[in-house]
Amino acid sequence: MKSSNSAAVAGSNDDAVLQWVTFKLDNETYGINVMQVQEVLRYTDIAPVPGAPLYVLGIINLRGNVVTVIDTRSRFGLASADVNDATRIVIIEAEKQVIGILVDSVAEVVYLRRSEIDNAPNVGTEESTKFIQGVSNRENELLILVDLDKLLSDEEWMELTEI
């Protein structure tokens, strides 16, 4: 899999500045590489797809294109929550596919130097452990950086193309 960190880089290469779009899920703040974010949508009705994998909420029509929306909470092992005014669908590109991820809210775009990113604790064997590519302290708040390419396994990315 390719690394998505090569984009959104400024400054010298040894301590490059990366931009991250942050969103909230269950009171935690997550960040995704800004270069993988295409747009952020208000919540719109998601049409369920019969026979789709559990991690797929359904599909939406985005200006004539069908986009699959992933159940991010379930993917992260979190309990489901009701949709509200802050709920957003973030349209991202990963593994050469455009998908939507449902999040509680979108916060801001932050700038982080590579040196400000720490490795996540190497504990746990669950699949979701791989989603975290690092953590960073920012204004006394922990930002959990998500590797979108690893949000799904290779097989699951393939599976999405067939929906």
Partner: peptide, 14 residues
Amino acid sequence: INHLMGRPRWYLGV
């Protein structure tokens, strides 16, 4: 304590 996904039950977070 920030919860990190995919960790064992005994791991509360950071």
